[in-house]
Write a protein that binds this DNA or RNA. Structure first.
Length: 423
RNA sequence: GGAGAGGUGGCAGAGUGGUCGAAUGCGGCGGUCUCGAAAACCGUUGACCCGGGCAACUGGGUCCGGGGGUUCGAAUCCCCCCCUCUCCGCCA
């Protein structure tokens, strides 16, 4: 949620910036401002009435204590009218607050200054590209065929036992999963992130606080009997650790990381893009989360992207880093960098990480604040990024490293896998 | 799943109808003392909303797990829900 303060102070700026996300905010913003004004007027009236009632109640108490019950009774009569009025006003106030909130949540986060307008991923800017694209033999196989050939992953058994998008990893395939998870976690810990192993289900409050609800409801698996949601990313439980808190400025930044399985219903996806590991209902990911001082969040963002880049370098994968244009960014993000690795056999770039600064947007909903150097309470900035999501990394590792002898493992991974070749 | 106990400020914990946003202790912050620190002592210390002020600050309102009710008045009484703890049962 954009803080109401921002909307009051700079409505025109908000409208202008949201155009970068192709969002026409003018009507909503105007509506918000008038509802806001109405709300304040109502509250003022209500507060005055309440002040009078409080005063009268106090007087009645004193009169009773002094044994002047006739006078007290008389005063009691006079509170009836007031009570009815405050009742009406507080109902009005509650409904106006609800209306206001419903409008505000419809506004996406403001894109940062550096973010350019654009409609789709075609307009994203490549800001960094590293590594040489491998040129494979014409006999090169896509990862789903390699997975079958070397018996690493079984999509068929997953489909039999659960459904499409829930693969089994087998033998060295399973070991590779564990190796990557450990490698990513160790790297994150070395970079100063504190490891958490989170619950894989969260309650409704948590899903709201990080913004999965109400609008992305259909993307999450829901356990109806207990009203719990399977997490789509570790960001949800880990960020919610800090819901409703006031931190001290010297506690910032807070750096957290977590491995988790992630569950996504991904309704409506189909075709070649979802073949093999390209898109799954359940996958593994190591997530990094940072809670930062507002003045520092863009520096922190750079640190996070450097961390992700270093992982890809160690895995010896050709990658590029892309700054998303306004139209391709998520609702809650102020700026997002995607990392993509090149899949040689599919001859396309696969997104393996998304690193975002949510500025104060998520913090506002989380009610996550800090006391600054002057003792003022302010919203923090939150950031997160995948470091990294496994499936497409595995796809790229298998495809790019296929040789006549088998699939060779990058050096950094061998201590974790215990093998350097899959044959 | 069964039985019981309980949810109060950063933490611990008192408060069972009126002057209670709430005793007390701890912690935090500021000071005295000290070369410095500890100890001791003194002072101070919640969040949110609306208004006034450039600001320090200040007036009003709300908040004692959440929601509803009784009452002139609720942390305190009643109802519903949620959560935690203890014992029993079941269980990796």
């Amino acid at each position: 949620m954009i803080p109401i303060q921002t909307l009051r102070e700079n409505p025109d700026y908000v409208i202008e910036r949201l155009k970068v996300k192709n969002f026409e905010a003018k009507e909503i913003v105007q509506s918000i401002l008038s509802h806001d004004e109405e709300r304040r007027k109502t509250q003022k009236m209500l507060d005055e009435k309440l002040a009078t009632s409080n005063q009268m109640a106090r007087e009645i108490g004193i009169l009773f204590k002094q044994g002047r019950s006739d006078e007290a009774q008389e005063l009691k009569m006079r509170t009836a009218q007031l009570k009815e009025e405050t009742r009406e006003l507080s109902e009005k106030l509650a409904s106006e607050e609800k209306n206001l909130e419903e409008l505000i949540v419809r506004l996406p986060n403001l894109p940062a200054e550096i973010v350019k307008p654009g409609k789709s991923s075609a307009e994203n800017e490549v800001v960094l590209q590293e590594g040489t694209l491998p040129s494979l033999e014409s006999t090169a196989l896509p990862h789903w065929e390699l997975a079958q050939k070397f018996n690493l992953i079984s999509f068929e058994l997953g489909a039999k036992v659960t459904g499409a998008g829930f693969p089994f990893y087998v033998g060295k395939g399973a070991k590779l999963q564990r190796a990557l998870i450990s490698f990513f976690l160790d790297e994150a810990i070395a970079a100063g992130f504190l490891e958490f192993e989170p619950p894989l289900l969260v309650n409704e409050d948590s899903a709201f606080a990080t913004g999965q609800l109400p609008d992305k409801e259909g993307q999450m698996y829901h356990v109806a009997i207990d009203n719990l949601y399977l997490i789509p990313t570790a960001e949800v439980p880990v960020t919610n650790l800090y819901r409703n808190m006031v931190l001290k400025h010297n506690e910032l930044p807070i750096k957290l990381c977590a491995y988790s399985a992630c569950f996504r219903r991904e309704a409506g996806s189909y075709g070649k893009d979802v073949r093999g590991l390209n898109r799954l209902h359940q996958f593994d990911k190591v997530e990094i989360v940072e809670i930062a001082h507002p003045d520092q969040s863009f520096r922190v963002l750079d640190e996070m992207t450097s961390h992700v880049a270093s992982l890809l370098r160690k895995l010896e994968l050709p990658f590029r880093m892309v700054r998303l244009c306004g139209g391709d960014m998520s609702f809650t993000s102020a700026i997002t960098y995607d990392f993509e690795v090149y899949s040689a056999a599919q001859q396309k770039w696969l997104e393996v990480s998304s690193v975002s600064n949510f500025t104060d947007y998520q913090a506002n909903r989380l009610k996550l604040r800090f006391k600054d150097e002057e003792g003022k309470t302010r919203l923090v900035h939150t950031l997160n990024g995948s470091a990294l999501a496994l499936p497409r990394i595995v796809a790229a590792l298998l495809e790019n490293n296929q040789t006549p002898e088998g699939i060779r493992m990058p050096k950094a991974l061998v201590p974790y896998t215990g093998f350097d070749l899959i044959s």
